[in-house]
């Protein structure tokens, strides 16, 4: 599989995932660049890899974690709700719709681990098995993070509805 094919199939999803993970499109671009350089450098033989897209997401996730460690950024401060909300507003379309806008805002308020699973599930269209492989966790943990995340989203959205109502 050539780099062009990889980019055409999951490049946009990767960039979106990294933007939400790093809370910065510029950092996401740097990390995405490094991911592709890494793939090119090691001439990854994709025919020996069962699930190339999950593999590339795993590489991107590792690269993002390395990037954050190198920058010595405090993830709590880095993933501030305001910053994340701003990034999501800038990078998602369809937010003119009030319900979608509220959902996107609620997404910024759930814990990072749960948000990551939800983002990978809905935005990047990965299966639970693939998400488990990307995050290096079991499928049970993945599904439970997803469940808890969705519950929190529901609570947050209900609260917003009640508040607006």
């Amino acid at each position: 599989m050539h780099l062009e094919k990889i980019f055409d199939s999951i490049g946009e999803k990767l960039f979106n995932y990294l933007t939400i993970k790093l809370c910065s499109p510029l950092d996401a671009e740097d990390v995405l660049q490094e991911v592709f350089c890494r793939l090119a450098r090691y001439r990854v033989r994709f025919r020996f890899i069962q699930n190339p897209s999950a593999y590339v997401f795993r590489v991107a996730r590792n690269e993002a974690i390395r990037f954050l460690k190198n920058r010595k950024r405090n993830p709590e401060r880095y993933h501030s709700v305001e910053k994340l909300s701003e990034v999501i507003q800038d990078n998602l379309i369809g937010l003119e719709n009030e319900a979608l806008n509220q959902t996107a805002k609620a997404l910024t308020q759930i814990p990072e681990e749960q948000r990551e699973v939800i983002v990978l599930k809905f935005f990047e269209d990965l299966t639970f098995k693939e998400i488990a492989s990307v995050c290096g966790i079991s499928i049970n943990t993945t599904t439970s993070r997803f469940r808890y995340g969705m519950k929190k989203l529901r609570i947050l959205l209900e609260g917003q509805h009640e508040g607006s109502g």
Binding site: E12, L92, F123
Partner: peptide
């Protein structure tokens, strides 16, 4: 919520 999340899509 799932339907709403599915409707959210990243900018090209």
């Amino acid at each position: 919520i799932q339907i709403l999340l599915e409707r959210l899509s990243p900018k090209p």
